[in-house]
Every structure is written in structure tokens, then in C-alpha cells.
């Protein structure tokens, strides 16, 4: 598909969007696989995630090059320009999502089969389900240019934050109960943090979709409900 002769601006633009959709599919797959690797302690799958991430990076470069060429050659205005800028921003976000998934996969290898309490892993899996739902909804919103769905995604990020805070608290309790838990719990904590960050990238993409569709930048700061930065004196309670 890469070598076909483009004959119109529309087609060039559509090809750029196809690359974004391809990146989206790849990123979704990486997140899902990295969490599956974590829950099953599947080191083979984790290594596959680490290797596949390179492909996402290559795609991001390709998107960047195509976007720059498009802007230089066609000098698009208004919606056309916004669409290309949107594609650039989203490819950045998706590339970061891939990196975060890769980091989870690397931690699976580092944990080396040292399983922590099953309940905690179920918690991380639960977190990833919401993050994946958000990612899927926002990528669909981008291809269909659906602002309403994108705004819904932006609102739902609170759910991820609340769940992350709850997990953070529980992991801390585990570490205090038994110092032998510290190393695996720390890895799990970073995995949870990574997934929470993936949710933030989905929110970013939602804001980009809003920008592409309406031409307005989202200025108002979203209220963060991640309360983990407030939890510190838990031991003194």
C-alpha cells in the first residue's frame, strides 16, 4: 500500500489518516498485549511487545515526513491544516502510548515471574480495561470526526484517576506489611502509573479531535482527581 501513486490532495490526506489508524491499531495492540503479559507473567509476549514498539516509532517518523511534505507542497488552510496538525499531535501521543506499553513489558521481564497478590494484578488489569476503552473510543472519534464522543472520553478520565489512586494506596499497604513485597510492588506501581498515563494520552487525543472538528483549542484546565500525590502519611494513620 505504501508505493501507490497519489494523484490528489484528498488521497494524500487519506493516506496520512490511514497511517494514523495503523498506529492506533498498533498502540491498542501493544497496550493489550503488555497487560496480558503482566497478568500471565508471559515473558515471550513481553519481548514481542518490546520488539513491536520499534514499528510504531518508524510509523511516527513516516507520519511526520508525510505531514511536512503535505504542508510544504499544498499549503493547506483552515480545516485541512488542522487535520494535518491533528495527525501530527496524535501520532506523538500514540508513539508515547507505545513507549509506555513497552515499559510495562520490560517490567514483566524484570519481575521475572515473581507474582504479587493476584488481587493487585486484577486491579491493574481493570485499570487497563478502562484505558483501552478510552483509547478505542477516541480513535474511533478521530476517524469519524465525532466531537461528542471525544468530549465524553475527556470526562471519563476521572474514573482512571480514581482507580489509580485506590491501587496506589493498596500497593503502599502491601509494601508496608512485608518488605519482601517492595520490589515487585514497585514494578506493579509503575505499570499502573504507565496505564494512567496512557489514559492521559487518550485525553490529549480527545482534545486534538475537538480542535480538528471545531477549530477551538481546549483551554480550561481539566480537574485532576488523581489523589495519589496526597497520600503520603498513610503509615501515620
Amino acid at each position: 500500500m505504501a508505493d501507490h501513486i497519489v494523484s490528489s490532495y484528498d488521497q494524500e490526506l487519506k493516506l496520512l489518516m490511514t497511517k494514523i489508524a495503523e498506529m492506533g491499531g498498533l498502540a491498542e495492540g501493544l497496550v493489550a498485549d503488555s497487560v496480558t503479559a503482566l497478568t500471565r507473567m508471559d515473558i515471550g509476549l513481553a519481548q514481542k511487545v518490546v520488539l513491536t514498539d520499534a514499528r510504531l516509532d518508524r510509523l511516527q517518523h513516516e507520519v511526520e515526513e508525510r505531514a511536512i511534505l503535505l504542508i510544504a507542497r499544498r499549503q493547506p488552510m483552515a480545516l485541512d491544516l488542522r487535520e494535518i496538525m491533528g495527525a501530527l499531535r496524535i501520532s506523538n501521543d500514540l508513539e508515547r502510548v507505545g513507549d509506555l506499553a513497552k515499559n510495562i513489558a520490560k517490567r514483566v521481564t524484570a519481575m521475572h515471574g515473581n507474582m504479587v497478590a493476584k488481587q493487585l494484578v486484577i486491579g491493574v488489569e481493570h485499570l487497563s480495561e478502562i484505558a483501552l476503552e478510552q483509547l478505542k473510543a477516541v480513535l474511533d472519534a478521530f476517524t469519524t470526526r465525532d466531537d461528542a464522543v471525544a468530549m465524553e472520553v475527556r470526562k471519563r478520565d476521572d474514573e482512571i484517576d480514581a482507580l489509580y489512586t485506590s491501587l496506589f494506596r493498596e500497593l503502599l499497604t502491601y509494601m508496608m506489611e512485608d518488605p519482601r513485597n517492595i520490589s515487585s510492588c514497585t514494578h506493579l506501581l509503575f505499570c499502573a502509573k504507565n496505564i494512567e498515563r496512557i489514559g492521559d494520552h487518550a485525553t490529549n487525543i480527545a482534545e486534538t479531535v475537538h480542535f480538528v472538528v471545531t477549530g477551538e483549542q481546549m483551554i480550561e484546565e481539566r480537574l485532576k482527581s488523581d489523589g495519589s500525590s496526597m497520600i503520603g502519611s498513610i503509615g501515620a494513620e
Partner: peptide, 21 residues
Amino acid sequence: GDPLNFKLRATALNDALERVV
């Protein structure tokens, strides 16, 4: 008129389509 992967983003499907062509 839209690319297939606008709706079905699965990488496996995307790759298979490229190989078929």
C-alpha cells in the same frame, strides 16, 4: 471510500491486507 483500518484497526488484519496486495 474510507480505508478499511478506519474501522478495523487490528494490526494483523492491516498487515495481511498489505501482503495480499
